[in-house]
């Protein structure tokens, strides 16, 4: 009997300790949730922020732009991350802060001789009307489209800036992260995909769009045509911890972190 009492007492103490521990952490951490494209940059910002301000905690989670917006509405996140412009009906719901701008890179295999495409050509490739690289000045190979999944922020930005009303071909391969797109395109000489310019590495080739090289400098100068905002959105009464973090992100220090990682400063 006493043995049972002891065991249950120990379990109770453990549970209490656990709940206090979790509760304490939760109160201090600022939840930043949303776009998978913004996530890696937000994590670096959070790291720099926590170093600069000991005692403040930022918890960054992915899930997607739409998830971020929903989490902000539900009060699960103090800040939502969004990698596309807000839609009309969303604008009324949030206060938005542009933390950076990002070029949308059209990427191909490094060995692909095609290095310059017009927006119109990109659209006709992704609708499936143009199905061979020869038609855009490349070798005689089929074009393999790699896209992001339905309603990812990156995909929606691509749809808006490139596709307009046109639909992406059914043959397009869908992947659920920038990393997976990169993995496929760097392996496959026939592939073409789109991703955040900040995440393009030397394993891929970002083609020139309308003759303009996809570089941060050209995004900043407004010459590169495919540019989208990275947004932080908040809702309701201002939250001191959220404001403090956003101020840090917009400060020269925070913006320097983003520029170092290949994004373009907001202002």
């Amino acid at each position: 009997m006493t043995k049972w009492l002891l065991v249950s007492a120990a379990i109770a103490v453990l549970l209490m300790a656990l709940s206090f521990g979790l509760g304490g952490r939760e109160e201090a951490a600022l939840a930043v949730v949303g776009s998978n494209s913004v996530q890696p940059f937000a994590e670096m910002l959070a790291e720099a922020y926590q170093q600069a301000h000991p005692g403040r905690f930022v918890d960054v989670q992915g899930g997607g732009s739409t998830v971020g917006l929903q989490a902000t509405i539900d009060g699960i996140a103090e800040i939502g991350m969004c990698s596309r412009e807000l839609k009309k009906e969303e604008e009324a719901l949030f206060r938005q802060v542009m933390i950076a701008r990002d070029g949308l890179a059209i990427v191909v295999h490094p060995s692909n001789p095609v290095s310059d495409l017009a927006v119109e050509e990109v659209r006709r490739m992704f609708t499936g009307d143009v199905a061979n690289w020869r038609a855009v000045g490349g070798e005689d190979r089929p074009i393999r489209l790699v896209v992001r999944e339905e309603s990812s922020g990156t995909r929606e930005a691509f749809m808006k800036m490139v596709m307009g009303k046109a639909r992406v071909s059914r043959k397009a391969i869908s992947q659920d992260s920038n990393g997976a797109i990169k993995e496929l395109v760097k392996q496959d000489a026939c592939a073409i995909g789109f991703m955040s310019l900040g995440l393009v590495t030397s394993e891929l080739k970002a083609v020139r769009i309308e003759g303009v090289p996809a570089t941060a400098a050209n995004v900043l100068a407004g010459r590169y045509p495919l540019v989208r905002p990275f947004l932080f959105v908040t809702r309701g009464p201002a939250d001191e911890r959220a404001e403090h973090f956003i101020d840090f992100v917009l400060s020269p220090e925070g913006q320097a972190v983003l520029e170092r990682e290949g994004l373009v400063r907001a202002r």
């Binding site: 999944e149 309603s151 059914r170 043959k171 397009a172 391969i173 869908s174 992947q175 659920d176």
Partner: peptide
């Protein structure tokens, strides 16, 4: 591969029911 097209050979990419749910 998660395409939306019907596969015509075993070398074609496909999307399964579970992938469709988890992806979107």
């Amino acid at each position: 591969g998660n395409t939306l097209d019907l596969p015509h050979s075993i070398l074609d990419p496909v999307r399964t029911l579970t992938s469709n749910i988890a992806l979107e």
